[in-house]
Write a protein that binds this DNA or RNA. Structure first.
Length: 977
RNA sequence: GCCUUGGUGGUGGAAUGGUAGACACGCAGGACUUAAAAUCCUGUAGUAGCAAUACUGUGCGGGUUCAAGUCCCGCCCGAGGUACCA
């Protein structure tokens, strides 16, 4: 008596028996990965200590800000690359420092705190836990015992300590380095410019503040009223805050700043000694913006006032036809004539209220006003009118320019607008058309400079200017001092208090200055920063603290040092640790930090070097920028028919989706009548079904609209209809019109974001395909530095690869089976080819090509049916940086008892690749026609002789004698006809 | 505008001046299976041809070379960054 089968059960049964028939056990990545994840964690496999017997390598990722959204597949790209590099270096016998931490002070946690009242520390901790969980899944070889968090008091104690050192230092131009402030006092005393002893405390303080590297000064800042804080230039994009997009205005404020400008020249010069990408170096060079020229004084007509300008083109001095000063220029009042006063006042007022954004929006329009004053040309004695124009910036140079309309396009536009004279002084241009800006040609209309080349004229005029004390040769930098105070809560408190209005730093022994609790994370009613809310928060119970906190980049400007010695509470880093680890050998991160973080970290490193705390003056020898991973959105297309019907009552529209090709045809109007009528009928029927009471229903027009669909329910652009229906209540009864039984989605590359439903998390990939697969796939996508859209479509390629790799070590039944036999020549060749390739690729950061070569190697060894342990053990080691889990498992099965982390990278032996013969492409006029194998020991002449004797050659020669025959041994034969 | 990049099949991408399109995805066909999935095999730049083969092909136009995706000159287009910086 059997159990009666229903067809469905029968189907399931046969499936089951099928499975039993073949008892092959596939690679179980879930089990294996979980096993090694736990093993590495409990054995602290990646814990690193100083080991002077080994060479060191410091491999670092830019640490993340732990945001609430978690990691998406774009984030780990750089981490995977650096992890491969770190694991490779270990195999090569290096002692590798490969840590990770969190840049955990920042705006989003604070914004969230303002909205919800939850302390930013809690939000931050939750986010960090989530990040850690996600990173752990991917199998990074970080030494987590060295984790740092910038918001941790034991960390920011040292950020504050560095601030104190900056405060207590000045930049000595004579020694060209930062020194203790005491050496400045000594110098002041020697020079006797001031009677130091006789100065009041306030005077001393003010005097020193002009030299301290951390100083308080009145600066123009980017003030964001909505956020209640000051923003750095690089936090402002298009006149609005980078985070949140709130309007930003210019405002004068007493602020803490860091004197980064003192380091401008060194920051520029030392770029030559580091191996960073040209684009980052160039961005930093532009940001520092060095320009050489001359300052020059113009006497104001009828006054003792001098107007000083900075120009890079002193050679064009005889072409000056007017001067322009910034609307904020300090001498505007003195320069304005009574007659022009109302016009000037109106203009200055308007310019002041024009936000950065507006000024930027109309770069093309030229505005300005005449002051009514004139200056005297220092060489011709002619009167030169002084104008005000907002294209001149108060913050750069002297806030005044000498306008040479013939040779500067902005001056030219200004002159054209206000009908001011334009005089050419360098041959070569046509001033009727445009300004001639090239620094090339002979000087004309220039008195004693006439006939000189621009370059020579430049030298001569600077000499004359200096001789006559009209000014002097000068170098200007675009780089501004870095504003260091933020009116925010979630940051490091600046360790300063005020005694009788004099800023004093907290004693280093009293650090850390703990961030106090506040009732609200908002500014106070009278506009003071949130820290002013802290109850009884006073230095020694008496003196008011500074209420600003440090900017986001403070903690990240030195974290690479802390990883070397993260638990030291006596020093920021011990001498021993920093002498051993020195600086970063490989730094990987996004190029968006080109002029922010990467400039500040160089600045702090140089400062700490100057003051003798560390032995290196650059943070990173080698820098790689990983590309952005963009999102790839999928779309479904809903039919949106327009109906007309008799009844007025609200109608229910049907939910019908058409596959992408159908949508395309509707959009492009190349849909045939039959299909169109069918679609119309389906829509109409559905409508009537849903609205049975509607009368006189008519279809007006057939249209489709695209809707984003979650990429996680789409595979290879085919929609999982069941999941889609389940995803939202209103989709439950959706209908689909498909072709070939597949609903094809549209796709488009966009930024990866929640609102576009195109976020792919690494967790989902790890869950579905495994961490090894994710690692390989991210590398396989393309060159590390290139931006590319994330597309999960071809992930099956790497997934298959791992399974094929696994099968190499297993027999047909899935039992581990390797042999101790000696490998043959082909097997050695396949192995050594991959040893060479992987080594070259990792050292050249070409990770995508090494994944391909692994595939080739596994394909070759599979074809050779190679199961020799001598080959397979080395293969496991080679692959282990890329796919550590499966490599570790195979390594153990091969009988090893220690982690593959401690294995040795196989040594490449060229002799295995030596070939005795080569199949030459025989080409005619560069076109390959056929192949022929020749022994490589054959001489060029012999090869030529043999080729010429061949029947095929004669065919292509068509009876003609060749003009020339080129034989490149081991490469090609080319016959020129 | 300037700076930095990049432009190669249906797609992601390979190519020290020396066989363009490695590797992978997708697609097509086949094997196994009652069937499907998985797996394996074959083909896959375009045009013409049953085929051998021929021609055309690395954004465009020139050049250097026996030989150019690669080097040089001049353009076009995309991406990222940056800007009244005197």
């Amino acid at each position: 008596m059997g159990i009666p089968f229903s067809p469905l059960i029968l189907k399931q049964y046969s499936l089951f028996s099928q499975h039993l028939k073949s008892n092959y056990v596939e690679y179980n990545f879930r089990e294996v990965e979980a096993k090694w994840r736990a093993h590495w964690a409990s054995n602290k496999t990646f814990k690193t200590e100083i080991d002077s017997a080994k060479p060191k390598s410091y491999v670092l990722d830019m640490f993340p800000y732990p945001s609430g959204a978690g990691l998406h597949v774009g984030h780990p790209l750089g981490y995977i690359a650096s992890d491969i590099f770190a694991r490779y270096k270990r195999l090569k016998g290096f002692n590798v420092l490969h840590p990770m931490g969190y840049d955990s002070f920042g705006l989003p946690a604070e914004q969230y705190a303002i909205q919800t009242g939850q302390h930013p520390a809690i939000t931050t901790k939750d986010n960090i836990n989530r990040y850690r969980e996600q990173m752990d899944k991917i199998g990074f070889s970080f030494d987590w015992d060295r984790e740092v968090r910038t918001s941790d008091p034991s960390y920011y104690k040292w950020t504050q300590w560095i601030f104190i050192q900056l405060f207590n230092s000045w930049y000595n131009p004579a020694t060209n380095k930062a020194e203790k402030i005491e050496t400045l006092i000594a110098q002041i005393e020697i020079e006797g410019k001031y009677q130091w002893e006789n100065l009041s405390e306030k005077e001393k303080s003010d005097l020193l503040l002009e030299h301290r590297l951390a100083f308080l000064s009145e600066t123009m800042v980017n003030w964001c009223p909505t956020l209640g804080t000051v923003l750095a230039n690089d936090e402002v994009k298009d006149g609005v805050s980078e985070r949140g997009g709130h309007p930003v205005e210019r405002k004068k404020m007493l602020q803490w700043s860091l004197r980064i400008t003192a380091y401008a020249e060194r920051l520029l010069n030392d770029l030559n000694g580091i191996d960073w990408t040209e684009s980052i170096k160039e961005a930093q060079r532009n940001w520092i913006g060095k320009s050489t020229g001359s300052s020059l004084k113009f006497k104001v007509q009828g006054s003792n006032l001098d107007l000083e300008v900075f120009t890079t083109r002193p050679d064009t001095i005889f072409g000056v036809s007017f001067l322009v000063i910034a609307p904020e220029h300090e001498h505007i009042a003195a320069l304005t004539s009574a007659h022009q006063k109302s016009a000037v006042d109106a203009y200055v007022e308007k310019a002041k209220n024009r936000s950065e954004r507006e000024r930027m929006a109309d770069v093309k329009s030229v505005t300005g006003v005449f002051t009514g004053s004139y200056v005297v040309h220092p060489f011709t004695g002619k009167d030169i009118p002084v104008w005000i124009g907002d294209y001149v910036l108060a913050g750069y140079g002297t806030g005044a320019v000498m306008a040479v309309a013939g040779h500067d396009s902005r001056d030219y536009a200004f002159a054209k607008t206000f009908q001011l004279p334009i005089m050419p002084v360098v041959e070569g241009g046509n001033i009727e058309e445009e300004a001639y800006e090239a620094k090339q040609g002979k000087m004309i209309n220039s008195d004693f400079l006439n006939g000189l080349e621009v370059k020579d004229a430049m030298k001569k005029i600077i000499a004359v200017i200096e001789e006559k004390s009209l000014g002097k040769g000068k170098t200007n930098y675009r780089l501004r001092d870095a504003v260091f105070g933020r009116q925010r809560y979630w940051g490091e408190p600046i360790p300063v208090y005020y005694k009788d209005g004099i800023p004093m730093v907290v004693d280093a022994s009293e650090l850390p200055l703990i961030l106090p609790e506040v009732d609200k994370y908002l500014p106070t009613l009278n506009g003071e920063p949130p820290l002013a809310r802290a109850a009884d928060w006073k230095y020694h119970g008496k003196y008011e603290y500074e209420y600003s906190t440090m900017p986001g980049w403070a903690g990240s400007s030195w974290y690479f040092l802390r990883y070397m010695d993260p638990h030291n509470d006596k020093e920021l880093v011990s001498k021993e640790a920093v002498e051993y680890w020195k600086n970063i050998d490989l730094y990987i991160g996004g190029s968006e930090h080109a002029t922010g973080h990467l400039l500040y970290v160089r600045f702090w490193t140089k400062f700490l070097y100057d003051r003798g705390y560390i032995p290196v003056n650059e943070p990173a020898q080698k820098l790689i920028n990983q590309g952005m991973i963009q999102g790839r959105s999928n779309f479904v297309y809903r039919i949106k028919p327009l109906f007309s019907c008799g009844s007025d009552e609200s109608v229910v529209l049907p939910l019908i989706f058409v596959s992408m090709p159908i949508h395309d045809r509707i959009q492009n109007r190349n849909i045939d009548d039959l299909e169109k009528r069918n679609l119309e009928k389906v829509s109409l029927d559905a409508f009537i079904r849903l609205n049975p009471t509607a009368e006189n229903v008519n279809l007006m027009r057939l249209e489709t609209t695209a809707l984003h669909v979650d990429v996680n329910i789409v595979e290879n652009d085919v929609l999982d209809i069941e999941k889609f229906k389940a995803s939202r209540e209103e989709y439950k009864n959706a209908e689909f019109i498909v072709e070939d039984e597949k609903y094809i989605c549209g796709a488009e590359v966009e930024k990866m974001s929640k609102s576009k439903y195109n976020v792919v998390s690494p967790d989902s990939i790890v869950e579905k395909h495994g961490a090894d697969c994710l690692r390989l796939y991210e590398m396989f996508l393309g060159p590390l530095e290139l931006s590319k859209p994330w597309n999960t479509n071809s992930i099956s390629g790497t997934s298959n690869f791992i399974r094929r790799l696994w099968r190499l070590y297993h027999d047909a039944d899935g039992n581990f089976a390797v042999s101790d036999e000696a490998p043959n020549k082909e097997e050695f060749k396949a192995l050594h080819k991959i040893i060479k390739k992987v080594q070259e690729d990792i050292e050249g950061f070409s990770f995508n090509t090494s994944v391909s070569s692994f595939m080739i190697a596994v394909n070759e060894l599979t074809a050779l049916k190679c199961n020799k342990s001598a080959i397979l053990a080395d293969l496991a080691v080679l692959i282990s940086p890329y796919a550590p889990f499966v490599a570790e498992e195979l390594w153990e099965k091969l009988g090893n008892t220690t982690s593959i982390t401690f294995a040795k990278f196989p040594e490449f032996k060229a002799e295995y690749l030596v070939e005795s013969a080569f199949s030459y492409p025989i080409s005619f006029n560069g076109k390959t026609r056929f192949f022929h194998e020749f022994d490589l020991s054959l001489s060029k002449e012999d090869v030529e002789k043999e080729v010429m004797a061949m029947e095929q050659t004669q065919k292509y020669l068509e009876g003609k004698a060749p003009k020339k025959v080129i034989v490149v041994p081991g490469k090609i034969v080319n016959i020129v006809l």
